[in-house]
Design a protein around this nucleic acid. Sequence first.
DNA 1: CACCTAAACGGACTTTACCCCGTTTCATCG
DNA 2: CGATGAAACGGGGTAAAGTCCGTTTAGGTG
Lengths: 203, 203
Amino acid sequence: MYRPVILGTQPAERADATRNRLHLLATAREMLAEQGADRLTMDGLAERAGLGKGTVFRRFGTRAGIFQALLDDDEHNFQRQVLSGPPPLGPGATPLERLIAYGRARACFLIEHRDVARAALDGSQPIPIGGRTPMSQIHIRMLLGQVGLDGFDLDMLTVQLVAALDGPVLLYLSSDEFTDAVGELEQGMGRAWQKLVERVCRP
Amino acid sequence: MYRPVILGTQPAERADATRNRLHLLATAREMLAEQGADRLTMDGLAERAGLGKGTVFRRFGTRAGIFQALLDDDEHNFQRQVLSGPPPLGPGATPLERLIAYGRARACFLIEHRDVARAALDGSQPIPIGGRTPMSQIHIRMLLGQVGLDGFDLDMLTVQLVAALDGPVLLYLSSDEFTDAVGELEQGMGRAWQKLVERVCRP
DNA sequence: CACCTAAACGGACTTTACCCCGTTTCATCG
DNA sequence: CGATGAAACGGGGTAAAGTCCGTTTAGGTG
């Protein structure tokens, strides 16, 4: 029997699966808006969506998986801006300018979506820095390559910079105090990121 | 009724509490060595230690708290080295040299104690970077102050550097592959840290 | 030494993430 | 179409973290 196997293509999601996935995400957003992230339980979500618990877990694997899916969803816009939007975030500016712009934009993005971002962290799978968001990793790595630094282990430097970018944000996410003065915080982080990157990339 | 209130001094731990705390830590280390961190449950620990579950939770608050306590314990030696050991880790070298030495030493420390360090992370209380280990925070902040950098927000830079230091280690902790080649990894991280700090601090 | 209070103790109870597996539904192929 | 295998579904079951509150005990006071 002939079966056309296309490498790297997994079997394609079934129609009912897609429908349920989208419905669950929508329901999750509703509950998130109404009750906040920590009041969202898997049982509750399943019941409200009119589906079985097992279904929820098959779709998202884990509780954090739901929030990761929501975050991925939000991230699509952001990715478009980065990959094909106007400079300095998109192509057209110098690598250093894009690096600076990227850090600022990502900090803003995470702060805006802090509720979801925070809930997307998972203790039992502790890769908070760059493992779950390969986008930052890949993009920063590419830009660093274009900068043309000598004598650096660029992969390691990438991990360091991603961490330096996410670290302050995570620290912020973890304290429930700063609910005001968000704009100011974004500015501070942006400035700090710019300074750091300029120093590192200085010839 | 007169009560001598000494500010900043909490009521002092009761003798039985101390005894139980130490006994629990010792038992936890045994179980850790025998079964690994993820097979260590609160019920199991309580039973093996011959104590009630409530006691375990009063002492450590949370599961991660146990591992944090174990890590704190391990950290005492390290702290002594940093605060009063020989240069370049201890006092006597230039701030930049100490900064470099500190990063190397901390990376080695975390890698050595990776089992406990990993289990000490807590998803529901996500402050993985510098919040739970104010030691790095404080020490690096102090050294940066001594370096004499102009135009930096030193507090923010501290958070960035702590993250850049911990990030690669956390990333490493999360992948169960590299169980070999530990020495090599420590070297790579050490070199990368040195390069980063030298660049940032360069006049 | 008897008393008293605040802290510590124990373990049943609750909550919730996650697993399992018998049942149902989709999509493909003859 | 109808058959068929694979995938999805449902929801009861399990394990483990964390809470509660009635009971016990350490250690200071008169």
